[in-house]
Computed example of a mutant assay.
Amino acid sequence: MPDLTETRVTITFRAEGDLTMNSLMGWLRRDGQVARSAEIIAVPAANGSMGALEVIDVVVSNATGIAGLLVAYRAWRQAKRQTAPVTIVINNVSVVHDGTDEADRRVVRAVEAAAGRVSGDPGDGAA
């Protein structure tokens, strides 16, 4: 992954049961690598037409921190048996993450695109 400085990552999802912003924020804050390389910020929920959206902003200090964030997110998703997709926005590049390995690759391409290293739309799987 490219070296980046202070990258903003926004994670947006619909709250479902115990799959809440507080659950994910707590998980991320307990992860040592994420805690060392990121600032995690709760954003007030916005009411959409189909319910409240949960939003977490994470300001990551380097690309390794983004990788750690992705690993921690996947671990949370698996532990909570999260099936609903979330939207991850990295420096205005949006990716829908559905828990698949391909979604991980799209996030990596979004990081690279945000660093100006790759052309194409990472949200649709093009690299």
Rank of each mutant, 00 (worst) to 15 (best):
R74I: 07
I41C: 11
T64K: 08
R30L: 09
G48V: 04
V43A: 03
Q82D: 13
T7P: 04
V118A: 10
T100R: 01
V9F: 04
V60E: 01
D121L: 14
T10G: 00
V58P: 04
A46S: 15
R74N: 09
M1I: 15
L69A: 07
V58E: 10
N22D: 05
E112I: 13
V58W: 04
V71N: 01
P2S: 10
T20H: 02
I66P: 02
G123S: 03
K80I: 08
S61G: 08
L24Q: 02
L70D: 09
R81W: 13
I41V: 15
N47S: 14
R8W: 06
N62A: 00
V55P: 04
A15M: 10
V60L: 07
G125H: 12
A38R: 03
M21Q: 15
G116E: 11
D31K: 04
M25E: 12
A67V: 10
D98V: 09
V93Q: 00
A67I: 10
R109C: 11
D3C: 09
T5D: 11
P2W: 11
S119T: 15
A38C: 06
I11D: 05
D104Y: 08
D98A: 06
T7V: 08
A15W: 02
T87W: 00
D121T: 12
W76Y: 05
P85L: 01
L4F: 12
D98C: 10
R14I: 11
V96S: 02
L53F: 13
Y73S: 06
V93S: 05
A84R: 02
V108K: 02
M1E: 12
G99N: 14
A103L: 07
R14V: 08
L70H: 06
L19G: 00
W27Q: 12
A113Q: 02
V59W: 05
V60A: 05
A126H: 14
S119L: 14
I88K: 02
D121H: 10
V93C: 00
G125L: 14
G51W: 02
Y73W: 08
D57N: 15
A84V: 05
I40H: 06
A115S: 15
S49Q: 10
V95A: 01
R81M: 09
S119A: 15
G123W: 00
G68A: 09
P44V: 11
V71C: 04
V111C: 05
A113D: 06
R30F: 05
E112G: 06
H97T: 09
G120N: 13
A35C: 03
I11T: 08
A79R: 09
G120Q: 12
R14T: 06
I90S: 00
Q78F: 13
G123I: 00
K80E: 07
H97D: 15
A52F: 11
L70V: 13
N91C: 03
G26P: 13
G120P: 07
T7L: 13
E102M: 14
N47A: 14
W27P: 01
I40P: 01
R81G: 10
G116M: 14
A84Q: 01
P44E: 14
V58F: 12
G48N: 12
I90A: 00
S49V: 10
G125A: 11
R8D: 11
D31C: 07
T83V: 01
Q78D: 15
L28F: 01
L19W: 06
V9T: 06
L53G: 03
P122M: 05
L28T: 11
V9M: 08
R14K: 06
A79S: 05
I66E: 05
V108N: 08
R81L: 14
A75N: 11
V95S: 00
